[in-house]
Design a protein around this nucleic acid. Structure first.
Length: 667
RNA sequence: GGACGCGUAGCUCAGCGGGAGAGCACUACGUUGACAUCGUAGGGGUCGCUGGUUCGAUCCCAGCCGCGUCCA
């Protein structure tokens, strides 16, 4: 009320049209104020006429600007009424003043009534106190001009965001940028480099000496200047970070060498505050982007998805987690969960799982040590002969490539997952298991090759995993330092060269051979489990139908399959005896003669289920291949792949149906 | 109000045009001298809904519903 300067009505409001242009007298203050027409008032609300206080309301300020109204500030820095108000109000706190205004209205007979309404008022986020907008002089940066090159730099790829979709957030803000208020009334910070002369004239210079010089020139004599007491917005100062830390404004060697920097790692919540400002200032002061890539990492939340905060008490203290699970487990968890999604829901269960992963690798290393898997002098991974070793060397190469590519691309989660799968599901589950018969077997050359291969793979694993689990890998590197031939790199693993392995180490024939062995064992186990064949039973494994190459492979892998599938021997036969349970993998028909152990009904159910499974796939594939449009328009290799799958499914189904029929006959 | 993002197994998430995946949880069984912080096997999903594009959609497009975050 005390700072009002106009009454506004909507231009279309017929009730007041005749009053526009006239003036009313402001009660208490006595000031005549104009009645103006503006789009801002809502004719539906209240009387449809609204008083305008440009100095204390954002909307009213805009109205005031449009109509060139005076802006009367009636508050001081402590939200007390100042000297612009009538004397009896001066010095009163805002709340007391409001009460007094109401009382005065009542006394004057102007109060029509008091209504309770709900409205939104801003509160200080620390004090909780209602914030009163009021007019002050502040320093602004014309951010729009600074934003232009910063937008262009990202559009043209001089700086890229990872994940890329954050560029949208950046553009959204930069293209709608507002003038940036850079002055703050705080104690700490860079002081604004503006000096005032006795007549209020301002001198903005880089240094006080320069300001003095300019003032002397202006006034014609040395003059006392007063520096503005405000400091720069924290983010204004922070935006200088990429180059001020390198010695700017001096032209230092560091600055020349390290600017522009490579990758900035930060959180999405400060893309606006920090990243955008660094871009603007970097381009302005240095003429080049401050960094070539911005990696935005996810925000850690609690297991239920809430942002961790001390006041909510849902903070998981990293030091406590480290105590419980180890730093590597926590680090691996955060890495594995740092995908393109914007937050990480951290749970103890997850960390526990990756702690177990570390333990697994520890035990696998122990296994290697116990089985003489020492590094061999001059070992060459391209020279290995056993399919098992050729296969694991190839898998190591593939993993190294995947991890290297993922890291280069900030795909840290992909790198972690690739390592997890390789180390646990390939190396531990299969390589170590398949190597046991060789390591305990009579063939000395095969054993030596396998020992050397395992040692080589383990060293590569330690190098690849080191960035994500530095402590565990460094420890294992140290523990195996003297085991066998000396390493080319004898120092800390941390300083070891990153693996660079040739694709020529990948052998698809070895891959296919090991795939057959793995499938034969897995499927065989499945048969045993589903039919409740006792674990101690050691039937033979019958091979009914295989190419000569498959036959040779199975023959040479007999000890290995025997141990892992717990069969007594491999026997190549032309026809399965009655009651033998068949299964088909990679086109090979195998059978387990376990009639004495099994429940015929269970076996029939198992076979029927398998047959139905194949039947479903056959139907789907036939329908697809029966569609002339598919055959005509889909890429040749896709059509071919579908044909092969159909043929395989049909063959497998026929074999299993035959077995089912035989079983029916037995019963 | 504007912008961005997310809805896939009980839970947490990956996949993002041609065969629905992982970890945890769950069920059963544990025998093999690395590992019970483990092993083997298994159950569990009209990939939010409705349309469109396509020979083909969990994947691309539009709309809707639900949820989240940032900015006003």
């Amino acid at each position: 009320m005390l700072g009002d300067v106009a009454v506004a009505v909507h231009p279309s409001d017929a009730r007041y049209a005749s009053l526009v242009g006239k003036a009313v007298r402001l009660p208490i203050v006595g000031r005549p104020v104009p009645i103006i027409a503006d789009e801002y008032p809502d004719p539906e609300k209240g009387s449809g006429a609204v008083k305008i206080t440009p100095a204390h309301d954002f909307n009213d300020f805009a109205v005031g600007k449009r109509h060139n109204l005076p802006m009367i500030n009636v508050l001081d820095d402590f939200a007390r009424i100042n000297d612009n108000a009538p004397p009896e109000y001066r010095g009163l706190d805002r709340f007391a003043a409001r009460k007094k205004v109401v009382e005065e209205f009542e006394r004057l007979g102007l109060l029509r009534g008091i209504e309770k309404t709900r409205h939104v008022v801003p509160h200080g986020d620390r004090s909780g106190v209602v914030v009163e907008p009021y007019l002050t002089d502040q320093w602004y940066v014309n951010a729009e001009i600074l934003a232009r090159p910063a937008i262009k730099a990202v559009e043209e790829g001089a700086t890229v965001f990872a994940p890329k979709h954050w560029e949208k957030t950046y553009f959204e803000w930069m293209r709608n940028i507002q003038p940036w208020c850079i002055s703050r009334q705080l104690w700490w910070g860079h002081r604004i480099p503006a000096w005032f002369g006795p007549d209020g004239r301002v001198f903005v210079e880089e240094t006080e000496a320069e300001a003095q010089r300019q003032a002397e020139e202006h006034y014609g004599r040395p003059t006392d200047l007063r520096q503005d007491e405000d400091v720069l917005d924290t983010w204004f100062s922070s935006a200088l970070w990429p180059f001020s830390t390198l010695g700017w404004p001096e032209k230092t060697e560091d600055l020349a060498r390290f600017y522009p920097t490579h990758t900035l790692i930060t959180g999405f919540d400060i893309i606006f505050f920090w990243v955008a400002r660094m871009m603007m200032q970097g381009l302005h002061f240095m003429g080049e982007v401050p960094f070539k890539r911005v990696f935005i990492n996810a925000l850690v939340r609690d297991a239920s998805g809430a942002k961790m905060s001390k006041s909510k008490g849902n903070v998981m203290d990293p030091l406590e987690l480290v105590d419980d699970y180890g730093a590597d487990a926590l680090r691996f968890t955060l890495t594995a969960m740092s995908g393109a999604a914007r937050d990480i829901k951290l749970s103890r269960q997850r960390i526990e799982g990756y702690r177990n992963f570390g333990t697994k690798l520890w035990n696998a290393t122990r296994f290697c040590q116990m089985n003489g898997c020492a590094r061999a002098e001059g070992f060459d991974p391209s020279s290995v002969k056993l399919a098992l070793n050729r296969w694991i060397v190839g898998e190591t190469v593939r993993t190294a490539r995947a991890v290297t590519a993922a890291l280069a691309d900030c795909g840290f989660d992909e790198a972690a997952n690739a390592l997890y799968r390789f180390i646990w599901n390939r190396f531990c589950d299969w390589y170590v298991e398949l190597s046991k018969p060789v390591l305990n077997g009579p063939d000395e050359a095969a054993r030596a090759e396998t020992q050397a291969s395992a040692a080589w793979v383990l060293d590569e694993i330690l190098k690849l995993l080191h960035p994500i689990m530095p402590f565990l890998t460094e420890e294992l590197w140290g523990q195996t330092a003297d085991f066998g031939a000396a390493r080319a790199h004898r120092d800390f693993l941390m300083t070891a060269p990153w693996p660079e392995l040739s694709d020529s180490l990948i052998h698809s024939d070895a891959d296919a051979e090991i795939a057959l062995i793995i499938e034969a064992i897995s499927e065989g186990r499945s048969v045993r489990a589903e039919l409740n064949v006792p674990p101690a039973a050691r039937p033979a494994l019958l091979v009914l139908d295989a190419t000569p190459a498959q036959r040779a492979l199975l023959e040479s892998s007999a000890p290995l399959i025997g141990q892992l599938l717990r069969v007594s021997e491999l026997r190549f036969v032309d026809a399965a005896p009655e009651g033998a349970i068949p299964y088909v993998v990679e086109g090979v028909t195998l059978a387990l003669p376990v009639a004495e152990f099994i429940d015929l009904a269970a076996e029939r159910a198992r076979l029927a289920k398998e047959v139905a499974g194949h039947g479903g796939e056959i139907e789907k594939l036939s329908r697809k291949l029966g569609n002339p449009d598919f055959v005509a328009r889909a890429p040749e290799e896709v059509v071919e792949e579908n044909r092969e799958r159909l043929a395989e499914a049909e063959a497998a189904k026929a074999k299993l149906e035959a077995a089912l029929a035989r079983l029916g006959a037995v019963a």
